[in-house]
């Protein structure tokens, strides 16, 4: 299953694993067995150099730290425009960037609670997105 609204990167085993869980509505990060660093989105290798990583399920609840309404998209996203992009801090302290749905921009506020959900696009691609809770 292809990840993201648009992408041309090859589907690696690592991404296949992430997407498989995402389709079950699970948001997976990775943790370094060496230094304990946590990554969301996940990485196959740690910044400390370690390759010993394990998957963990990240929190899917958080609060908006910043947002914008994209009315002037890149060419590849034209048909999806306009869309809201946001960065949220999740309950486990990790941060994520995604599109946000279910709220009008005028009602958006920094600090608002959101949850992360899986979504299948009309092109049968898989993404995570924020929904106001």
């Amino acid at each position: 299953m292809k990840f993201g609204y648009v992408s041309w990167l090859p589907e690696t085993d690592f991404m296949a694993r992430f997407v498989e869980e995402l389709e079950k509505n699970k948001l997976m990060g990775t943790r370094c067995k060496g230094c304990g660093a946590r990554y969301l989105p996940p990485r196959a290798h740690c910044r400390c150099g370690s390759v010993e990583m394990e998957w963990f399920e990240a929190s899917r609840k958080g609060k908006i730290l910043a947002y914008t309404l994209v009315t002037f998209p890149p060419e590849s996203m034209s048909k999806n425009s306009p869309y809201i992009m946001a960065v949220a801090e999740l309950e486990d302290g990790l941060r994520l960037l995604a599109q946000l749905t279910g709220v009008a921009v005028k009602n958006l506020k920094i600090g608002m609670s959101v949850r992360v959900t899986s979504h299948r696009t009309p092109e049968s691609r898989v993404v995570y997105r924020f929904e106001t809770s």
């Binding site: 989105p41 994209v70 599109q99």
Partner: peptide, 25 residues
């Protein structure tokens, strides 16, 4: 990042717009 941020429609104006809403707030 073409794996995790570009695929969501992040542009440079929108990256800085995120900073702008955070700074305004």
């Amino acid at each position: 990042d073409t794996r995790w941020e570009y695929p969501f429609g992040l542009t440079f104006p929108s990256s800085y717009a995120l900073m702008a809403t955070a700074h305004m707030h």
